[in-house]
Nucleic acid binder design. Structure first.
Length: 687
DNA sequence: GCACCTCGAGTTCA
DNA sequence: CTCGAGGTGC
């Protein structure tokens, strides 16, 4: 994270002290108060940051650092067991880069290049245990504890079916005393069942299977443990019985009657590791238990042993975690953007961080109220996640990590683009100038966008270019662009110029509803544009079948507020906005100009005769993506057949159509008891 | 005047 | 996708 930046030593020292404090605090809350302040994932990022800083500045490493310790302290209720050999944990990697770095460090340490073979294991989110067999009989079972001393939980471990009480002696000879290690965990199904039970009893559900597994193993009454149906894999033989490879240990364990994970794999090179990681990152949902990454171990035990231990972890192994759904990062700045409607939107500029497989650097903060609610200052450490797995969102500020140097954010009183006064409109701050450069620019983006004139290949970047080069100054100019002018610009050739002009020419005709939408009138979106268009066509077509832009202007200009409000879904605010727009001289001029440059408005008959009774009065909501057709097409079909489409689920919704990877609407439907149908069933309905 | 339903607007990254 | 807020119906 810090590799390419030489960071201030002073900063590192302060930051290390703070990170240690906060990680210790979270740990304390979790262990003693059974309260999870931040998610383990977010905490991981903090630990990683600390680890990286300590590596950069080893002089600041202290023995009390969380990076120097393993697991939790043993509880008093249990007898203590000293492990023959220290139980270690793993250092974390979060990216290919981290893994490559690890491999480089390992190679440097050993003085020769290491690139396989490796053994890759699924890293189950459970609780590490050690089992000791004497003469083939299980005599001790313990938790990791602090790595040196663990708790004796033999009685509880004996309730787990997957842990053999006696070893099978069929094919392998085992020594007098055999020590093995593995993981105890709870299946997702069991976890859900236990939580349903909790809710039924009016108790708070558990946060995750890991916590329940840990809690169950630490039960004083083994009967409670037995009721929890825990499971266990073993993955390590501590006793030296001549095993040469780690993979061999798994085979031996299996033969001795232990449950081993058959999804584990020998990987010849690091690329196989990456493949393995990617595969399970995509398929982990299908496993009956939770995994949070993979563990990579040098398969050759001689390599493993000679690499030794660094801090709390073996040098020849690393945990390669899956990209987390949330992480922590630092807000380095808050920028202000101006949108099409003049709204000033504060955007957090953050230290790059990987969340859900992509690197996040920006997140919208929506408005000043949101910043106040979060209590966010510039320089704060925050938790970010991706809402609906897509949109980055700042969810929490870690105020304990403040240094006092954080700066308060103030919404500017003047527009950052054109310096006009900023006015408050509800929670939104708006630039008061209607001709603000930013608004003008954004209006043009809107004009050519998919649901408006749909001019492909004319995105924001190119519009910007044309504006800056003064090729265009308003929407109408777009239709008068000449190939020669475009081709004259750098980075554009004759071919691309021809393509753009051709595309623009082909989009000169637009349906009235799209046309109205493209004007970008405040509070007038797709739906309202459709309603306005229907209304206008009905009124105008009586005496004029060919629609002139001039007529449209005249029609809307003369509509009174009351008449507008008569239209369904239009109230005072929207009516005001519409009338205001058409009565603005500048806008009237734009319409005239659009007419002059040859824009033609078509008036397709809305909801033509073929309406079927089947979908009449039914409201559909589509979630996820459909396989047979794009969502827009599906919506169109429903409307053609007399049905309604909505974007949000409510009690009035008849069906929620589930595409692949449905979002939160599916949850909402279940909550409200709305009927959900698959894509297949949906297609049946359309027939 | 309140509750509920919808629509509009803004948004990130590959 | 989510939030805010406009609109409608009770």
């Amino acid at each position: 994270m810090y590799k390419n930046k030489s960071i201030d030593k002073k900063y590192a020292e302060e930051r290390i002290i703070q990170l240690k404090k906060i990680i210790g605090k979270y740990r304390h809350e979790r262990l003693t108060l059974n309260r999870e302040v931040i998610s383990p994932e977010a905490e991981d990022t903090l630990k990683k940051e600390l680890f990286d800083l300590e590596r950069e500045f080893p002089e600041f490493v202290t023995p009390d650092s969380p990076t120097q310790r393993v697991g939790g302290e043993p509880l008093k209720q249990f007898e203590k067991i000293r492990h023959d050999e220290r139980m270690l944990s793993f250092n974390d990697a979060f990216s290919k880069e981290d893994v490559n770095d690890w491999l480089e460090r390992l190679s440097n340490f050993l003085g020769r290049k290491i690139n396989g073979p490796f053994y890759a294991e699924l890293k189950i989110d459970g609780l590490a245990i050690e089992l000791v067999y004497e003469k083939g009989i299980l005599v001790h079972g313990s938790t990791r504890g602090d790595g040196e001393v663990g708790e004796d939980v033999t009685q509880n471990l004996k309730t787990i079916e997957a842990i053999p009480l006696a070893l099978t002696n069929a094919t392998v000879n085992f020594p007098e005393k055999l020590t093995v290690r593995g993981e105890v965990f709870l299946n997702k199904k069991e976890f859900d069942a236990i939580n349903r039970e909790q809710i039924k009893k009016g108790l708070k559900p558990y946060a995750n299977p890991r916590n329940v597994a840990a809690g169950s193993i630490r039960q004083l009454d083994p009967k409670v443990t037995a009721s929890r149906k825990l499971d266990s894999f073993q993955y390590d033989i501590v006793t030296k019985i001549g095993q040469k490879k780690h993979s061999e240990e798994h085979e031996i364990l299996h033969k001795l009657g232990f449950r081993t994970n058959t999804n584990n794999k020998i990987c010849a090179t690091i690329n196989d590791i990456f493949e393995f990681h990617e595969y399970w990152s995509k398929h982990r949902e299908k496993l009956p238990y939770e995994i949070d990454g993979i563990v990579i171990i040098a398969d050759d035990n001689s390599v493993y042993d000679s690499a030794g231990v660094i801090g709390k972890a073996p040098r020849a192994a690393i945990a390669y975690k899956f990209s987390p759904k949330e992480a922590t990062t630092v807000v380095e700045d808050i920028k202000v953007q101006v949108g099409r409607t003049g709204a000033l939107t504060p955007v957090a500029v953050m230290r790059p961080v990987n969340v859900g497989g992509v690197t996040i650097t920006h997140a919208s903060l929506h408005n000043a109220d949101e910043i106040k609610r979060l209590g966010l200052k510039i320089g704060d450490t925050v938790i970010v996640r991706r809402a609906g797995d897509v949109i980055p969102q700042v969810t929490k500020v870690l105020k304990e990590l403040r240094t006092g140097k954080e700066k308060e954010f103030k919404m500017p009183m003047r527009c950052p683009i054109d310096d006009s006064k900023v006015v408050q409109d509800g929670v939104i701050s708006r630039c008061s100038s209607k001709t603000c450069g930013a608004r003008h620019r954004e209006s043009l983006y809107h004009f050519v966008s998919r649901s408006a004139f749909d001019i492909r290949g004319l995105g924001p970047k190119i519009i910007d270019r044309f504006l800056d080069e003064s090729l265009i100054s308003d929407a109408a100019d777009i239709f008068e662009l000449k190939e020669g002018d475009i081709a004259a610009l750098e980075q554009f050739g004759e071919k691309s110029a021809e393509k753009i002009v051709k595309e623009i020419e082909s989009k000169k005709k637009a349906a009235l509803s799209r046309f109205i939408f493209s004007l970008g009138i405040l509070h007038v979106g797709e739906e309202t544009s459709q309603l306005l268009a229907e209304q206008a066509i009905e009124k105008l077509e009586i005496r004029n079948s060919k629609l002139e832009i001039a007529d449209i202007l005249k029609y809307f200009k003369n509509l009174s507020i009351a008449e507008l409000q008569n239209i369904r879904d239009i109230g005072p605010k929207v009516a005001e906005s519409i009338q205001g727009w058409f009565r603005e001289a500048r806008n009237a001029k734009l319409l005239e100009k659009l007419d002059d440059v040859g824009v033609i408005i078509t008036t397709p008959r809305p909801r033509s005769g073929q309406a079927s009774e089947k979908l009449k009065g039914k409201t559909f909501v589509i979630t996820g993506s459909l396989e047979s057709m794009p969502r827009d097409k599906a919506k169109e079909k429903i409307r053609q057949l007399g049905g309604d489409v909505s974007e949000s689920v409510s009690k009035k919704t008849s069906y929620v159509v589930l595409g692949s990877e449905p979002g939160s609407k599916y949850e909402k439907a279940k909550e409200l008891g709305v009927q959900t149908i698959s894509e297949k069933e949906f297609l049946e309905l359309l027939k």
